[in-house]
């Protein structure tokens, strides 16, 4: 299928940038997690678009690995969040500062 590299690199870059902005700006741990996911997806899209441009399937396999890592990360992160919520009753990252002071 016809594939123009820029058509897929640009959305990948925008996805990564949006996810990064959210991860930095948002206060809510769950939303921050979603934004990290967006960054991973952006990276995945970039990997795949290079793989498609190169005609090399290894890039696609790396994208699959990224998916596995993302899934593991989400599971662990959400488990920690649930635990934190049970302990403190909040999921705001501004309140997770007991090691800070």
């Amino acid at each position: 299928m016809h594939c123009q590299l820029s058509e897929f690199l640009a959305p990948a870059l925008m996805l990564f940038a949006t996810g990064f902005a959210g991860a930095v700006l948002k206060k809510n741990a769950i939303i921050v997690f979603m934004c990290v996911e967006l960054m991973l997806v952006g990276a995945m899209l970039a990997l795949l678009s290079f793989a498609a441009a190169n005609g090399d399937v290894n890039g696609g396999v790396y994208a699959l690995f990224v998916m596995a890592i993302a899934a593991a990360e989400v599971a662990v992160g959400l488990a920690i969040l649930v635990r934190l919520f049970r302990l403190r009753g909040v999921v705001d990252v501004r309140d997770m500062n007991s090691l800070g002071d």
Partner: peptide, 30 residues
Amino acid sequence: MMGAYFPAFVMISVYAGAVLVLFVFVVMLV
């Protein structure tokens, strides 16, 4: 569109089918 059918559907299956449902589940718990 770029012809990567397998990753595309694995993506839907993993993200939409599992990761986001997990997110929503935790959101509903919290």
